[in-house]
């Protein structure tokens, strides 16, 4: 399990994530989602992104979400790597890779996983924009 859910401050290598995926002879589909740092958000230029994670809780939440997703969608395997720390525009934030017998399960499982990750995993983003610092999702403070 440990090598299937990873939180890291290091640059993510896509080939390394793929190498962690287990596939049987019945596997005919691999789907990957890559989330990257955008250079423009709400019309404002972004110079840098700082990602904060509550690591202990995030790891446990992701491990449970991974297991639930595998069981719910009948996929063979799922690997997720999420970055934290300081990232530059274009850097990879998250990689999710899913293997299954047929493509539909992998597409559906991958979409479900990233949607849930965004909803429940304790991760926050501080954008360094051209007009100052901005915490993503903090609009309720206004």
């Amino acid at each position: 399990m440990d090598n299937k859910v990873i939180l890291t401050s290091e640059r993510i290598e896509i080939s390394d994530v793929l190498n962690r995926l287990s596939k049987s002879e019945e596997c005919g589909a691999v789907v990957m989602f890559i989330g990257t740092v955008r250079g423009l958000d709400e019309g404002k230029k972004i110079h840098e992104l700082n990602i904060e994670i509550d690591v202990d809780v995030a790891l446990e939440t992701l491990q449970k979400l991974r297991q639930d997703t595998i069981e719910e969608y009948g996929i063979q395997d799922l690997v997720v790597v999420h970055r934290y720390g300081t990232l530059m525009v274009g850097d990879t934030i998250v990689v999710i890779v899913v293997a299954s017998a047929h493509r539909k399960e992998s597409f559906d499982a991958c979409e479900y996983f990233i949607d849930e990750l965004k909803r429940i995993v304790p991760v926050w983003k501080l954008e360094k924009r051209e007009n100052g610092m901005h915490w993503v999702g903090s609009e309720w403070l206004k």
């Binding site: 509550d54 934030i93 998250v94 965004k118 304790p122 991760v123 926050w124 983003k125 999702g137 903090s138």
Partner: peptide
Amino acid sequence: IRVYPPVCGG
């Protein structure tokens, strides 16, 4: 008790 603002990973 851990108190979080809205999360936004990915």
